[in-house]
């Protein structure tokens, strides 16, 4: 339980940083603050309100967070915004996903796993598109000082580390030492949300600028 509280505290701190700096953040930073709020709400609901059967809470929360992440990409990178790829992909993929899973009669646990696999696939794809944009863009600032570079790298590394674990969490659950993997995922999650908080904090301090 202590791990859960540490995890919630990290998300809360990052969220507070986002809210405090909300006015000065760019649109991407604002969306990420909303993303943190969504993550915290989902976790609290799953922990307190729907303690016994919280898979539906996670499915709803994850879908919403996935949409927010794609919205972040859409608003932060011109190559994605030009065709509104983020805004189109998120609702369309979720819609198609739920239609297919509904008609195939897939159990809830599997829906959650497939949903995460789909999310991971699209988020990694969008990260690559964002990298492409950052790579071809002639910038007069150092890349390590670009806000969006850190966010994309954080999302990219997070998803590449947790993609298969989340996707096969149902199988891993039966494994003898599954808790080792869950601790690992816990650390990766903490790094993601703590990292977002730190990046939002650095943006406020003026250490980071945008890619535009």
């Amino acid at each position: 339980m202590i791990y859960k509280y540490i995890y919630l505290s990290i998300i809360s701190i990052s969220l507070v940083i986002g809210i405090v700096n909300y006015r000065i953040l760019n649109i991407g930073g604002k969306i990420l603050t909303a993303y943190l709020l969504s993550v915290l709400t989902t976790e609290i609901l799953a922990l307190i309100v729907f303690k016994t059967d919280n898979l539906l809470v996670y499915i709803t929360g994850c879908s919403f967070q996935y949409a927010l992440v794609l919205f972040y990409f859409n608003e932060s990178f011109s190559n994605i915004k030009k065709r509104n790829l983020g805004l189109i992909t998120a609702p369309l993929s979720i819609f198609i996903f739920f239609i297919i899973t509904h008609f195939k009669g897939i159990p809830t646990r599997k829906i959650y796993e497939y949903l995460i696999l789909m999310e991971g696939f699209f988020i990694i794809s969008f990260c690559l598109m964002a990298y492409y944009y950052l790579l071809v863009k002639d910038m007069s600032t150092q890349i390590l000082r670009v806000f969006d570079f850190w966010i994309v790298s954080l999302l990219f590394l997070f998803w590449s580390l947790s993609y298969f674990y989340w996707g096969f969490s149902g199988i891993i659950f039966h494994y003898k030492y599954h808790y080792v993997i869950y601790y690992f995922i816990w650390v990766v999650n903490c790094i993601l949300y703590g990292g977002i908080g730190y990046i939002l904090y650095s943006y406020k301090k003026g250490k980071l600028g945008t890619a535009e």
């Binding site: 890349i143 990219f156 590449s160 580390l161 993609y163």
Partner: peptide, 17 residues
């Protein structure tokens, strides 16, 4: 996957530098 993404990020940073 992690090795690939880390290499990509590193390659990206070096290129951008």
């Amino acid at each position: 996957l992690f090795l690939f993404s880390t290499s990509l990020v590193l390659f990206f940073v070096v290129q951008k530098r």
